[in-house]
Design a protein around this nucleic acid. Sequence first.
DNA 1: AAACAATACAACCGCATAATT
DNA 2: CAATTATGCGGTTGTATTGTT
Length: 240
Amino acid sequence: MQRCSKSCRLRWTNYLRPGIKRGNFTPHEEGMIIHLQALLGNKWAAIASYLPQRTDNDVKNYWNTHLKKKLKKFQPAMELPQMAQACLNKTLATGSSSTIATYASSTENISRLLQGWMRASPNICSNQSAIILQTQSKDESGGGDLMSNEHFESILWFENMNNVAWEKSACGSTTSKGGFQDSGNDDQFSVEITQEMKQKTGNNSKFYPSFSSLEKWLLDDSCAGQVEEMNQWMELSPIF
DNA sequence: AAACAATACAACCGCATAATT
DNA sequence: CAATTATGCGGTTGTATTGTT
């Protein structure tokens, strides 16, 4: 079999390169992909950067063959962005204790990814890294249609989120300057976002969560666990 | 056992951008 | 600085495998 240099490189990066994990995706990985796809759209390389040992091709294939199907079944009951939002809501509302240590090994990838974002988006506030993700994710059925901004806004703009969570976190907050510092205190997540929200809305502008906030959410085990729960529910549900 | 369908995944293609000459 | 080459990425296709009738 003859391959051009491009094919060789591709085969190396996607198949032969050492350290590539093969086989089934764990529920946690599955959850990560679902979250990230909802947030980033079909940015497979970006999504894969959060999943060490998985290539973008892997993630893409898994999405197209497994997850897309699952979510399609699930969609009549809950739209995909809503699912991600519901997961996000629950995370904030419960303030469950969990650790981001699982993906600590991928911090390098994450920072790289975030740097890429920072470069890509002209609307980023330099200091607090508030974001407007200008995604051009393609709808699976539309094959080229832009996903509506409302979908992403519903995920990213925490205005739409469970007010109880905000009340709770706001009441419990004192001060939390300077971000997370890996304290392991998950309430701090809500606290920081709340304070950011107050800052932003105080300036009569829309609120965007900071990268660090989103990042923390993405790396939170609890959401993946919720997706796993959902998967189990889907399997048990008579609808499917 | 054969034919067909469905599935999974490696590989290919085209495009955009970065790096090199 | 332009031209060329290399690289990265996302969409799509090809094909081997598995399941079903």
